[in-house]
Design a binder for these strands. Structure first.
Lengths: 189, 189
DNA sequence: GATATCTATATCGGCTTGATATATGACGGG
DNA sequence: CCCGTCATATATCAAGCCGATATAGATATC
C-alpha cells in the first residue's frame, strides 16, 4: 500500500490539508501504526489531484502560505476501497530499543536503564493518545473502538513486561567499573 | 541508527556474509524488530570495510559467486558500542493491518475476516521463530531471553485480542449484499 | 525429467526520509 | 518588552533505502 492510498483513506473522514494529514500521522488516528514525511505527503496529494481522486481548494490565509484543502472524490473513494481490498503487507517494525536489548551485554548499565525508562515513557504517551482518541466523537464507530483496544492491550503488555522484567536486562549490562573492558573485549591485569 | 551500525552489531556474534545477515533479519535474532534489503546491506558492508570496522575474506565456492565473509575488528566493535550508546530513536511501525481495521466500515466482511486470519497466522509464525531462537545456545544470555520474552508477551496479547474481539470488527464491516452501496457511498432505492 | 527453491552477490530506478528554507503569529520567561 | 521557541503551512533536495531484477549452478520436490 503506497502513501497515496493512505492519504486517500484519511480523506474519507473529511477534507484536510497536507499539514493536517502529517499531524494525524503523529498524534491522531494513525499515530503508532503509520507515518510519512512532508516530502512524501505533498507529492502524493499532487498526484492524487492529477488522477482525479481528490479535489484541491486553496484557502487564503494572512501571513502564512495558502492552505490547500483536499477532499476525496467519489472516484477516489471507490479506488481507495478497491486498493485496500487488494491485500495487505505484513507489519513492518523497526525497533532500535529491541536492538539495544539484544546487545545489552555490551552496553553500560546506566545506558540500558535510561533506554528502558525512555521506552516506557513513549508507550505511556501512546496510551494517552489512545485515551484522547476514545473521547473523539468519531470513535462511536465499532471498528475504531476495536483499533483503540488493540493498541491498548499491546502497549500494556509491553509496559507490564518492561516493569516486571527490567532487572533481567540491567543485570546483563556492563557494570559501571568495567566499561573499558567491554569496549576492548579484553580483560587487562 | 543506520544499517551499517546494525550490521556491525550482528557481527559481534561472529563472522557472516551479506546473505547470512539478510537471513538473520528475516528468520533469526532480528526478525520482527528490524529488516533491510540487499540494496542496503551490501553497500553497508563495503563501507564498513573501507572504514576499517570490518575485515573481508573471500571464500571460494564452486558454481556460486565467492562468499565474502565479514568479521568485526576491535575498532569496529568499539565504534558499534559507542554508536548504540549515543541514543535510540522511538519505534517505527507500519501496519497495513491496523489501517485496514480503521477502515473496516468500508470493506467487505469477507476481506476483513481474511485479513484477521492472515494477521493471526503471521503472529503465530513469529512466535514459532521465537521458540526456535530460545533453543539456540546463544540464548543462554539473559538479555536474549529478555528479548524473546518481550516479543512473546506482545504477540500473545495481540493474538488474544484478535481472537476474542474479532466479532466487533466483522460486525462493523460491509455485509455481502451491500457492497455496491459502500463503494458509491450512496444508497439507491 | 521438469519445476521450484536455495545459495550468493550485485545493480538500479524510484520512492522516502530528514533537514532545511521561508514567512508570520502566538506564547511565555527573564 | 524583547527574544527564543513553538505552531502553522508549503516546498525542495541530497542522501539513503526498498523492491525488483539479473545471474547461475546446486539442491530439493513432484
Amino acid at each position: 500500500m503506497d502513501i497515496k492510498t493512505v492519504c486517500a483513506g484519511l480523506l474519507t473522514f473529511g477534507e484536510a490539508s497536507g499539514y493536517e494529514i502529517k499531524k494525524l500521522f503523529e498524534d491522531g488516528t494513525f499515530s503508532g501504526v503509520y507515518d510519512a514525511s512532508f516530502g512524501s505527503i505533498y507529492p502524493a496529494l499532487t498526484r492524487l489531484a492529477e488522477e482525479g481522486h481528490v479535489l484541491c481548494r486553496a484557502e487564503e490565509q494572512q501571513g502564512r502560505p495558502d492552505k490547500k484543502v483536499y477532499s476525496l472524490t467519489p472516484k477516489g473513494r471507490a479506488h481507495f476501497i478497491a486498493e485496500l481490498s487488494r491485500g495487505i503487507q505484513p507489519d513492518k517494525v523497526r525497533s532500535e530499543f529491541a536492538i539495544a536489548t539484544i546487545f545489552a551485554h555490551l552496553l553500560p548499565r546506566a545506558v540500558i536503564a535510561a533506554y528502558i525508562d525512555q521506552q516506557i515513557e513513549e508507550h505511556r504517551a501512546a496510551l494517552a493518545r489512545l485515551d484522547l482518541a476514545e473521547c473523539d466523537p468519531s470513535s462511536a464507530m465499532t471498528n475504531l473502538r476495536f483499533a483503540i483496544g488493540f493498541g491498548r492491550v499491546q502497549l500494556n503488555a509491553a509496559i507490564d513486561y518492561l516493569e516486571s522484567h527490567r532487572g533481567m536486562l540491567e543485570a546483563s549490562a556492563v557494570p559501571p567499573d568495567d566499561e573499558a573492558v567491554a569496549v576492548s573485549g579484553v580483560k587487562h591485569a
